[in-house]
Design a protein around this nucleic acid. Structure first.
Lengths: 183, 183
DNA sequence: CTCATGTGAGACGTTCATGTCTCATTGGCT
DNA sequence: AGCCAATGAGACATGAACGTCTCACATGAG
């Protein structure tokens, strides 16, 4: 009966990922609480979305830590990264589209930190000679976001299996569509 | 002074891509007409979005035709495809996120046709031995959408140059991040 | 010139999401 | 048992977006 903030945030993320325009009443119902209680703990819809953003950033940074991006080859690091990011994909997909939904308004500083760490990973791969240099590290970061969101939605809508998620994204991002003749 | 339907649709697409929640008044102002006139020609916001969807589908199918997906190698076809799709990327990005915004509601039959043609292209590449078969053709289609949207937004927000668009997307989709040792 | 069509500006009513408030009830703690 | 804090249900007011309508004006055709 006691208010479970984390549970509410996860339920909200699940619903809003499927339907970004859901009303606060729908969010409350999905979380199993009343609209009044939702407003008691999050002063307004904006505050809820911001809390979701904070949660997403925290999970994302935790995933980056767990993936140990600086260790081993960049290729291995990217694989670990995608695997670590998989659990928070739906939240990421929601926040990704939410960011496109509105104009500038200055984005959360956390995203800049995450962007920087991802870009650094791709840059490391380029400097070590593993990754090609004709695709900028910034673009590779953007592409990773896009593929994560696309994969997340494909899974949600049943066009892809959740088990394939990590493989699909990591393989496409690293190896591309073309068949490799020789290793 | 005479009403230019096509011009209005393009202005609406440009604005809505940047700000999907724009008001009908903002859309009208962006198109240089009054809100009343906008409502005279499109009975409601839904009708406008549907018209945008029809336009996007038509342009997309025209691009598929122009790319001659059945000719040459699948790789060449994909490159022609990305190049042909580039002009309507912003419209595609808007419709892509718009589709995720709402639940099912049955999607336009045009998208199914386009999906089928794209999937067929990737399947052809797999059967000819050009493309790897551990990534399903359906997923490659989804990934293409995701990369197009990511690229479109990156260009809009100035994180990537429009000139690089075709190269960025086609190269990443086909070749991936990893450097090729031998051709 | 005259008239008709189409447009812009603005007012108006409606709908809907939202935030706040009240009040009865519940569940836990002493 | 008795008390306190938190919750759920519902009413209420507010504001925004929308669709419709009216009226004045302009442009083009006859």
């Amino acid at each position: 009966m006691s208010f479970d903030r984390d549970h509410v945030l996860r339920a909200a993320a699940d619903l809003l990922t499927r339907k970004a325009t859901a009303t606060t009443e729908e969010v409350a119902r999905a979380a199993g609480i009343s609209r009044a209680t939702l407003n008691r703990h999050f002063s307004g819809r904006d505050a809820l979305v911001r809390a979701l953003e904070d949660l997403g950033i925290a999970e994302c940074e935790a995933a980056l830590d767990a993936a140990r991006l600086a260790e081993g080859t960049a290729e291995e690091a990217v694989r670990r990264l995608v695997r670590a990011l998989e659990p928070c994909t739906s939240l990421l997909a929601f926040l990704y589209s939410e960011n496109q939904l509105f104009e500038g308004e200055g984005q959360h500083a956390g995203w800049s930190r995450i962007d920087a760490r991802l870009t650094e990973l791709f840059r490391r791969g380029q400097e070590s000679g593993e990754f090609r240099i004709d695709l900028s590290a910034v673009w590779l970061t953007e592409a990773l976001y896009g593929l994560l969101a696309a994969g997340g939605w494909a899974v949600i809508e049943g066009r892809a299996a959740r088990n394939d998620f990590t493989h699909m994204i990591a393989e496409l991002l690293l190896g591309g569509t073309m068949r490799r003749d020789a290793s």
